[in-house]
Simulated assay, not measured.
Amino acid sequence: MEKQVKKLRFDLSGYYFFGLILLVCLGFWPSYFAKFFNGTANFSYYFHFHATVLILWMSLLIIQPILIRKKQVALHRLLGKISYLLIPLIFISILLLTHSRIPHQGPLTDNDLVGAFNSCKDLVILATAFFIAIRYKKDYQLHARGMIVTGLAFIEPAFIRFAFRVISDPFVAYLTTIFTLYVVFLLIIYCERKQAKARWVFPLIVGLYMIAHGMVLFDILYFPFWRDFVFWFSHVPITTI
Rank of each mutant, 00 (worst) to 15 (best):
D110E: 15
L96Q: 02
W232N: 06
K81I: 03
Y45E: 00
W29D: 00
L97F: 08
L152T: 08
V53I: 11
L187V: 11
H213V: 04
H143Q: 09
G14S: 04
S31G: 10
I102A: 05
L23I: 07
I21P: 00
I189L: 01
Q195P: 00
N38C: 05
I167G: 06
G19D: 03
H76G: 06
F117P: 07
F47G: 00
R69G: 05
T177Q: 08
L12W: 13
F202D: 03
K35S: 02
L113R: 00
E2P: 01
H213L: 01
R135A: 13
L208E: 11
L217W: 08
E192D: 11
S83M: 10
G80F: 02
G39Q: 15
C25D: 04
D219H: 12
N42W: 06
R77H: 09
R101Q: 03
H99W: 01
L79K: 03
A34F: 11
A153I: 12
H48D: 01
L89R: 11
I55N: 04
Y136D: 07
T109A: 14
P170Q: 05
F36I: 12
F162W: 15
G106R: 12
N111V: 12
R9P: 08
Y140M: 11
M58H: 07
L12Y: 13
V201N: 02
A212I: 03
V73R: 15
Q4A: 15
I205D: 05
R101N: 05
F171G: 03
G207E: 01
I148R: 09
A212K: 02
R77K: 15
I220K: 07
L61V: 03
L20A: 09
F47R: 15
F218K: 03
F17Q: 10
H99C: 06
A198Y: 07
P157A: 02
P157M: 07
Y190G: 01
A127D: 07
S119L: 06
N38Q: 13
R199N: 08
L56D: 04
N42L: 06
L26P: 03
Q4P: 00
V230F: 03
G106A: 09
G151M: 04
L12N: 10
I134C: 02
N118S: 07
P237Y: 04
F225P: 00
I63G: 04
S83Y: 10
L75R: 15
N38S: 14
R69M: 11
K6T: 12
C120S: 14
P224E: 13
F33Q: 04
S83T: 09
T40R: 15
P88V: 02
D228P: 00
C191V: 05
I62R: 04
K197C: 01
K197A: 04
T240H: 06
L26M: 15
P65E: 02
G214H: 10
K3S: 11
I148M: 13
I188K: 08
L142N: 06
T177D: 14
L208W: 01
A74C: 08
F91L: 12
L204A: 11
R9K: 03
K3T: 14
